[in-house]
């Protein structure tokens, strides 16, 4: 009897899991959000490699990456953040409910990111020192928003 009950519980758990995957709410929006984040990370990787000295500074490549980062930081992504697409409601996202809560300053955080990306875009082609100086504030903008609005383990 115990085995039967255990089996039923496992089946129920698996069933729930499968249903969750099929019916994941806001799947397109969350995929798009995460895609934009990955796209920014790829550009930061190009620039960070030069900042850390792993890759030789290349003005054209740096400019291209910084242009792309700015573009991805100034998209109108407002339609990607519907209420209820938070980490309490949907397992696949690390976006905390605080984004939608009273007093949220997510808009100001996004604006700060766009401004830092614009400063980086203006500096990236102007030599390694200029790139280094503008790279740090972009990282700070990433961290400042993640600190408040993303789960630690996301």
């Amino acid at each position: 009897m115990k085995k039967v009950i255990a089996g039923m519980m496992i089946a129920a758990a698996l069933g729930t899991g499968a249903a969750f995957a099929d019916d994941e709410p806001f799947e397109m929006q969350i995929d798009a959000r995460q895609g934009i984040m990955d796209y920014r990370a790829l550009q930061m990787g190009v620039l960070g490699g030069m900042v850390k000295g792993e890759v030789e500074y290349d003005a054209a490549a740096a400019q291209k990456a910084a242009d792309a980062l700015l573009a991805a930081s100034t998209l109108d992504a407002s339609m990607l953040w519907p209420a209820g697409s938070d980490s309490d409601a949907v397992m696949e996202t690390a976006a905390l409910p605080a984004i939608w809560a009273e007093g949220s300053d997510i808009g100001a955080k996004g604006k700060a990111m766009a401004e830092a990306a614009a400063a980086l875009q203006a500096a990236a082609g102007g030599g390694l020192d200029a790139l280094k100086a503008a790279f740090g504030p972009v990282g700070a903008a990433c961290g400042d928003c993640h600190k408040t609005y993303r789960k630690s383990d996301g």
Partner: peptide, 9 residues
Amino acid sequence: YDSAGGHMA
């Protein structure tokens, strides 16, 4: 080039 979130930040 993901960046730390939550308390780890």
